[in-house]
């Protein structure tokens, strides 16, 4: 792992979110809420379209964090606020762009302040992680 210095920017990573991925996540996580799979249902409850599971988006960010940390076992604390739904129309790969800035670094840990956007709109707020060095 590269040396993490307070204030340094971690290169961004782009994840593609599509309907097939949401079905796969629903099956793997057990969250079968139809707003994440069924367009008709999603619209019937007032949503613009199918939306991604907040936990799917957070899970992708978790992958980014684990990669920075050097593995899932080094992620100690990870939190996010689901501020905007990630809308996933049929047949579209929605780009989720994730980046981070290094916060406080101690001998044992580093804090990351994370940004996650779709179409340049922040979809997560207050996204932070503490990783073990």
């Amino acid at each position: 792992m590269s040396i993490l210095v307070t204030g340094s920017e971690i290169p961004a990573k782009t994840f593609l979110i599509n309907r097939a991925a949401l079905v796969q996540y629903a099956n793997a996580s057990g969250d079968q809420n139809p707003i994440h799979q069924n367009e008709e249902f999603a619209k019937s409850v007032g949503l613009e379209n199918v939306i991604a599971h907040g936990m799917y988006t957070m899970g992708l960010v978790g992958q980014y964090v684990a990669e920075i940390a050097g593995g899932s076992s080094k992620v100690q604390d990870f939190s996010a606020r689901f501020t905007k739904p990630v809308v996933v129309p049929a047949g579209v790969d929605v780009e989720l762009v994730v980046s981070a800035v290094v916060g406080e670094v101690t001998d044992a840990t580093a804090k990351l302040e994370i940004t996650a956007t779709c179409n340049e709109v922040k979809v997560l707020g207050m996204t932070k992680a503490v990783i073990l060095l």
């Binding site: 793997a28 992708l60 978790g62 992958q63 684990a66 593995g71």
Partner: peptide, 15 residues
């Protein structure tokens, strides 16, 4: 892990 595109190890993803 597969659903998140992560490598499969015996350690679970953080979420």
């Amino acid at each position: 892990a597969l659903a998140l595109g992560e490598p499969n190890t015996d350690i679970a993803p953080p979420t």
